[in-house]
């Protein structure tokens, strides 16, 4: 079977899946094709309220990389459940076209699991191919959002902010004011402030020690 007809057959199988388990298997098979034409269908799966299949679809979308971004951005914004999975996929892909959605998710999503994915995602956008001034602008937006989220009410989001700040700071020029701000944010998380659990402090401390060695 040619690749085109294989993908078409697997899409058809997915659309006919009659049970949660069949949907999961069909999603895994479609994801394993590693074919960009599968992206819109994998994005559709994100809205089916089937967590197992959504995990498989997110995995497949991340492995497609930038080729999956258009389909993810066309997602219906009122489908909340699907949007949460899309944030995870975009965070994993690291394409700068996902910036707006990640900023919005970290700043205002009600679910801590979505905010934590967005925080890590903002630290790992691939910016090397952007013109220098645009790169700096995007880094500034990521930094601002992550610093604001150092006071998030949920420990797991603050943990993810520490991870995001480390990743972001590693790509900022040593000695730049932005890098110093990122390190200042990590210092805040490292301090034994009220309600900051030891695991967040240790993660921030680890981030700072790695940045020192760079």
């Amino acid at each position: 079977m040619s690749q085109v007809s294989l993908v078409a057959a697997r899409i058809a199988a997915l659309q006919q899946a009659g049970s949660a388990l069949a949907l999961l298997q069909a999603t895994q098979e479609l994801a394993s094709c590693a074919d960009a034409s599968a992206a819109p269908v994998l994005v559709e799966v994100l809205g089916f309220n089937n967590p197992g299949a959504a995990v498989a679809a997110v995995k497949g979308l991340i492995s497609l990389g930038p080729a999956a971004v258009e389909a993810l951005l066309q997602l219906d914004p009122v489908n909340y459940g699907a949007r949460a999975w899309a944030v995870r996929a975009l965070a994993g892909i690291g394409d700068v076209r996902g910036l707006e959605l990640l900023l919005d998710a970290l700043g205002s999503d009600v679910a801590a699991s979505v905010r934590r994915a967005a925080a890590k995602g903002l630290g790992q956008l691939q910016l090397d191919e952007l013109p220098p001034d645009q790169k700096q602008d995007v880094q500034g937006q990521c930094l601002g959002a992550l610093l604001a989220a150092t006071s998030d009410g949920e420990w797991v989001v603050r943990y993810a902010v520490a991870v995001g700040l480390e990743l972001l700071a590693a790509g900022l020029p040593a000695g730049s004011p932005e890098r110093q701000q990122a390190q200042q944010g990590l210092l805040t998380l490292q301090e034994a402030a009220d309600g900051t659990p030891p695991v967040v402090q240790r993660r921030a401390k680890l981030a700072l020690s790695r940045l020192e060695l760079q």
Binding site: A112, S113, V156, V199, R202
Partner: peptide, 15 residues
């Protein structure tokens, strides 16, 4: 199990 639950368990292992 969901990652959220594993993260809480692992936090316990760390702390």
């Amino acid at each position: 199990a969901e990652n959220s639950l594993k993260l809480i368990a692992l936090r316990g292992l760390v702390e």
